[in-house]
């Protein structure tokens, strides 16, 4: 660019504007840092500092105590069941939505997203209405001595509900973008339906899958409202880690509550790292795609 033809006044005002921009830029960056520090960093710092208030010893006592370990086990169980189920569901849903045209498709997509817009407490409530003692299937279940609500199955169901959309939502746009010609090519070359899925589709969507699974895991691990409704809050039996934090906190056992909380925080940070990593792989996949 040349400034030769510009009148002197115009270039001077352009310079002034640039100087003004530089100042505005610094102020904006400073503001972003402040927001970040106050809103995101400070809560993390306080979790860790409260947990370590009485030293590392009490911290480990709190997270290694049998009830905490039982809660960890239940949380892992809820994650371990809801993530694979929603993974299979997500692949199936994304497959039929992205590979075919059919009536009512947009309704189906809305339905897949629906659990996002339902309050977690309502998500728990609906299972109580179905399977609770006074629920529609309550009598039938109690006759057979099956307990769902206020027991482990209820916790798994509520977790499943709130995490339904995660994998499907990541896969649908990715698979729509990629189209079906590679799958068609594979079929023309003699691949069976399963071979096509296994050798072509799966490798193409794997980073989207990882990303969806990471998000799904985060929510399943941390779900509180929905699980709180259907859990009997029985220590050592129907408490997940977040519920265990609540109980400790309400018993004014703050150090223990924050100790368990920092365990969850550490898991959350691991999830963030995994998310960042799968996201960058996904970005690479998108830009590296064929023209």
């Amino acid at each position: 660019m040349s400034s030769v033809s510009l009148p002197a006044t115009a270039s001077a005002s352009a310079k002034a504007a640039r100087r003004g921009n530089a100042l505005g830029r610094r102020l904006l960056i400073l503001a972003a840092w402040l927001v970040f520090a106050l809103f995101l960093l400070l809560p993390l710092v306080i979790v860790v500092s409260e947990a370590l208030k009485q030293g590392v010893g009490t911290f480990f006592t709190a997270i290694l105590e049998p009830d905490a370990l039982a809660a960890l086990k239940l949380t892992l169980l809820a994650v371990g069941l809801s993530v694979p189920l929603n993974l299979v569901f997500g692949v199936a849903a994304a497959w039929c939505v992205s590979k075919y045209e059919f009536r009512g498709k947009s309704l189906l997509v809305t339905l897949i997203d629906l659990p996002f817009s339902v309050s977690p407490v309502i998500a728990g409530l609906i299972y109580v209405l179905l399977f609770g003692a006074q629920g529609y299937f309550g009598e039938w279940l109690s006759d057979r001595d099956i307990q769902i609500v206020f027991a482990v199955p209820g916790i798994v169901l509520a977790t499943l509900f709130v995490t339904v959309p995660f994998v499907a939502r990541e896969l649908i746009p990715l698979m729509q973008e990629q189209g079906s010609t590679e799958e068609e090519a594979a079929r023309l070359l003699g691949a069976s339906g399963w071979q096509m899925f296994r050798h072509i589709t799966l490798p193409n969507i794997r980073w989207g899958l990882v990303y969806g699974v990471v998000l799904c895991t985060a929510r399943a691990m941390g779900e509180f409202g929905a699980v709180s409704v259907v859990s009997g809050h029985i220590r050592g039996l129907t408490n997940t880690l977040p519920l265990h934090v609540e109980i400790l906190y309400n018993e004014y056992n703050h150090v223990a509550a924050f100790s368990v909380a920092s365990l969850l925080l550490a898991l959350a940070l691991v999830i963030l790292l995994l998310k960042q990593w799968s996201e960058s792989r996904l970005a690479h996949l998108r830009t590296g795609a064929q023209p």
């Binding site: 995101l40 941390g222 934090v245």
Partner: peptide
């Protein structure tokens, strides 16, 4: 972080 952090925490 707010998405990854359990809400109770």
């Amino acid at each position: 972080l707010p998405f990854a952090l359990p809400t109770a925490v």
